[in-house]
Amino acid sequence: MSTTQETPYLFDPANWEFGAAGSIPSFIVTHLYYTGLALAIAILIAVPVGLYIGHTGRLAFVAINAGNAGRALPTLGLVSLLVTMFGLGLIPALIALVILAIPPILTSTYAGLRAVDRAAVDAAKGMGMRELGILLRVEIPMALPLIISGLRSAALQVVATATVAAYVGLGGLGRLLVDGLALNQYDRVVAGAVVVAVLAIVIDLVAEGIQRLVVSPGISGRALTRPSKSFPTVSPTQPRAGTASAG
């Protein structure tokens, strides 16, 4: 990790050596690892619960308020609390990441299912589909745009929180920021900030690409031939805009 006076941290080839401990690529890999792990756990918890609430309509207040509650919870406070209670290490930080990733997924899964046209569900029933068939073949495909936008928000939330968690010793790109601040190396701070910002934007764009691939053109509006009419109509109550991705 040698920095010369002339070459800023971000552009020093030594910092980009793949596989070297403490290099930018290794921080990226670690950051993605935390993000993927936290997101996977959050999906396993939030999607089934969201589907259950959305399909049955029971406990709706939980799903409705989860998004607001998650948004109001200060990320640094949560991370600090868990670390102070359970000590430094991966597990407390991971718990914080999972806790913050659950609300956007839960709320959007629920909202997605609720937004499904009741007439379509009725028609499915009328054609003899069973509950599970309705859920898997009608409700989920129609709810997919919202569910994926919830995942997108959650991913951004986790990327941002993982950065903050470097303050309590977590690895990843946050290290560059926190160590740079501690060492008063502003070029290192900038390098971390730029890379993590680019990473977040890339994840956002990839998620958007996945959304295009997975969602039926009949639902996304891409089947409409007139581009002037395919204005995105995301309302602020929808999780894409409704969940703070910055954390």
Binding site: L177, A197, D204
Partner: peptide, 17 residues
């Protein structure tokens, strides 16, 4: 949308520059 995706800590620290 891109600005909104940037993690807050990153934005906080690059703004002074």
């Amino acid at each position: 949308g891109l600005l909104y995706a940037i993690p807050s800590l990153a934005l906080f620290v690059v703004l002074p520059g």
